[in-house]
């Protein structure tokens, strides 16, 4: 029995959850690549691939748009498999019941995500299903991040307390939560914009600041730009608060700093997406960076709430005897 296990810390499970989260980011990037290259329907059938079993589809036939769509399906299957392992591992090694159910929720989400992905192909990419597919991906990512965080040694025993609340209103954890909600809403708008083909409804950036509203697509596009402004304000506000009062708490400062750096990158990528008329790389990187901002914001929020609440030390998480022993 390892030292980590004795302390109630299954470091392997934590690392596996982190690996699953990283793979999920890559999967979101590849998913973005499918949309950016307009390859979503290059494989017309699902779950088969041109009649082949998905896993036996010959590599020699990975041509054109098929490379992106089929690659996305295989990678998604891989993430699904990782999630199955994560769910079983968590269920049998984790003492906290709610963490176990969190892993089950992640498993259910990844299955629902796979089914949505299939449905959007079968129904020829209807915007509501494709948008739901994009948003559920972000939800799944947040679930895996939370599992990774809750199984981390820092969460289990080293999380310092910052007191019941910090200075300023709203309270710092609430501010972080509001930022996360703003980022998530912005991701929904972004997904809607991508799947309604409104990405170039306004072909210039940053002007006109207020475009002529001559179509629904312009309204969606404009909403995404306004959303970017709101998210930028929230992130800068959150970072300022943490920088001013909690900069010595690296568990808060690091994700806040990361979030701010990603925001700068994200705005630049958004601008390049318009300037390059939806060039594949900036557009796809914009999608993946959006997911990373959400991840950083969500992580910060969970830690912020964890550090204000009264938590007990790791002693309450003893090693759980595996069920099969």
């Amino acid at each position: 029995m390892s030292e980590h296990d004795l302390a109630g810390e299954n470091i392997g499970l934590h690392r596996f959850a982190v690996f699953t989260a990283l793979t999920t980011v890559f999967l979101i990037f590849v998913g973005g690549l499918v949309t950016s290259t307009e390859s979503g329907l290059s494989v017309p059938d699902w779950p088969t691939t041109y009649g082949w079993n998905m896993f036996t589809f010959p590599i020699s036939k990975w041509v054109g748009g098929i490379r992106y769509e089929h690659g996305h399906r295989l990678l998604a299957s891989g993430v699904g498999f990782l999630t199955v392992i994560l769910a079983f591992w968590t269920w049998f090694r984790e003492k906290r019941k709610w963490v176990r159910w969190l892993a089950v929720a992640a498993l259910g989400t990844v299955i629902a995500q796979g089914v949505l992905g299939g449905l959007t192909v079968i129904f020829l990419l209807p915007a509501p299903i494709s948008t739901a597919h994009a948003c559920l991906a972000q939800t799944f990512f947040c679930l895996v991040i939370s599992i990774a965080l809750f199984t981390s040694p820092a969460w289990k025993r080293e999380l310092p307390s910052i007191g019941e609340s910090g200075p300023g209103a709203p309270r710092m954890p609430v501010l972080c939560a509001l930022t996360t909600v703003a980022v998530y809403v912005q991701l929904i708008l972004g997904a809607l914009m991508r799947h309604t083909d409104a990405g170039l409804a306004v072909r210039t950036f940053p002007f006109p600041l207020i475009p002529p509203f001559d179509s629904e697509k312009v309204a969606i596009h404009f909403a995404h730009r306004v959303g970017a402004l709101v998210v930028a304000t929230m992130i800068v506000w959150t970072f300022s608060r943490i920088y001013s009062h909690y900069s010595h708490h690296r568990l808060l400062f690091r994700p806040a700093m990361t979030m701010l750096a990603l925001l700068v990158l994200q705005i630049a990528l958004g601008a390049f997406t318009v300037w390059t008329a939806k060039g594949v790389l900036p557009t796809t990187a914009h999608v993946a960076t959006g997911a990373l901002i959400l991840g950083a914001s969500f992580l910060l929020t969970l830690r912020a709430f964890g550090m204000v609440s009264k938590r007990q030390p790791a002693a309450i998480y003893p090693f759980r005897e595996p069920a099969w022993k």
């Binding site: 059938d45 269920w91 498993l107």
Partner: peptide, 27 residues
């Protein structure tokens, strides 16, 4: 508890298999 987990997993698997039984008709 393990029984409940197995039930959840079984239902999930059934859902996944239902998805796998989907569209192979390319006509």
């Amino acid at each position: 508890m393990q029984k409940r987990f197995l039930i959840v997993c079984s239902v999930s698997l059934l859902l996944a298999l239902a998805g796998c039984g989907g569209n192979t008709d390319t006509g």
